[in-house]
Design a protein around this nucleic acid. Structure first.
Lengths: 247, 247
DNA sequence: CGATCAATTGACTTAGCTCAAAGCATGTGG
DNA sequence: CCACATGCTTTGAGCTAAGTCAATTGATCG
């Protein structure tokens, strides 16, 4: 379950992190103080970051892919997936809380992945010295909030077909940057993960893939590889209002 | 559709806003600069804040209650409700975007309400001078993110009964601070709003209210007043794992 | 090459949606 | 102050999309 090692003086991850800090304003001492707070962790596929009851955490994903989940009560396997995260993402993981309604969030590795873990409180204290850093974290959080809301909209009232199509479009964009035309990539998550993220069962996910396959929009190869023949068409099925018909 | 008036020198709302700014670090000039950016708006029940294509906005809700919605494509009335907000909340409203998947978020008044509107960019620029303010905004954003994720969890795989129960528990807490025992309050939103927020139809919302009424857990009076006889029992129906059974 | 687990497919059930009609609040005009 | 009109809310009767259960096929790895 992932040991957190104190940060060795010069990790590859650390270098990447420093590079990602907003340039310009950052005085070296602040960057040093921030790095001093971080711990490195390596999660193998399927491992999860052990939850911390003390501190909220900010986790910087150096490499790999991970899912943020809210486990089912009672310890059943799986759990609602709140977000997928990829290299370069900053993930906010609230501390384990027994009082809060849903105070149990966990980061689980989809691939082997490399993390930098910061206690949120002291990270932000240290960042007080450098408003640019604080602002960068804020911007990322607002972006995450926006994504979360968009996903919530999905869940609200979209058909299984629309959810799957949207999921594929979103993955195409995040994994390859592609927003139209054909595109192919490898999904790091299982059908179960996709279902857990979209509020569908594996069977429904599978049936939707089959329909898209029959419609010629998606081809699959092995478990994880997918080829989208027309991202735009999928976006239409997803009900994304691109250049929305004016009111 | 709500005119935004430049901020008069001394509004009641402005005073409340200054009071809400983190104390201590705030030097008066920074507070002044922030206030200078704000515009006041008054929304009557049902009115909406006209969306701004230029700037993301930070809206401080001085008084009243509002919903943040993503309108349906094509201009149909209603729309998925992303969050309810009450006096004292800081709401982040992204700018109107034609390229983004869901770039249309609007704040609609449930009650008459009073707002302070800041362009996010310049607000944050001004706040750079005062890390305490920046951090306070960040904390609120992370809280909003957390709430949004929790709600998403709901939507994922909870029954209509669980969603309604959870909604009532959440409202009891936000409107009266009550987390257990009996509790009564007035809901500022219609059944349609509740449905739009939970991803249910009005009919289903109504049927669930009826069941709770028959179970003796809820009594209603007129359209908006509700009396909960046992918030704890509702929380249990909602599937909130309070003092979660250890794994 | 076989063991194992993920994915697919099929048959059936059901929660929640849709359509339609009837009851109640709430506000307005006489 | 009461009658009426309007728009919420409730209730009823089917219908459908997605879930459940069960069996089969296919991929992946030792």
């Amino acid at each position: 379950m992932a040991t957190i090692s104190p940060l060795p003086p010069a990790t590859a991850g650390l270098a990447a992190f420093r590079a990602a800090l907003p340039a310009g304003t950052g005085d070296a001492p602040t960057a040093d103080r921030l790095c001093a707070l971080g711990g490195a962790a390596y999660l193998a596929r399927g491992e999860q970051l052990s939850p911390d009851p003390q501190d909220d955490r900010l986790v910087w994903l150096v490499s790999g892919a991970a899912k943020l989940i809210a486990p089912y009560a009672g310890g059943a396997p799986g759990g609602q997936i709140l977000a997928f995260h990829f290299a370069g993402d900053l993930v906010s993981v609230p501390r384990l809380s027994t009082t809060e309604p849903c105070g149990d969030f966990r980061l689980v590795a989809l691939d082997d992945c490399e993390l930098l873990i910061f206690p949120a409180g002291s990270f932000l204290d240290a960042a007080q010295g450098d408003p640019a850093v604080l602002r960068s974290v804020l911007t990322r959080s607002l972006q995450a909030l926006h994504r979360s809301r968009t996903r919530m909209m999905q869940m609200g009232h979209k058909s299984a077909a629309a959810r799957i199509a949207d999921f594929l479009v979103a993955m195409a964009e995040r994994l390859t940057g592609c927003t139209a035309g054909p595109c192919s990539f490898s999904l790091p998550m299982s059908r179960r993960d996709i279902g857990d993220a979209l509020g569908l069962t594996i069977e429904t996910v599978s049936r939707q893939f089959t329909e898209l396959r029959e419609a010629g929009l998606v081809a699959t190869e092995g478990r994880s590889k997918v080829c989208l023949s027309d991202v735009g068409a999928l976006a239409r099925i997803a009900g994304r209002q691109q250049g929305s018909p004016k009111i």
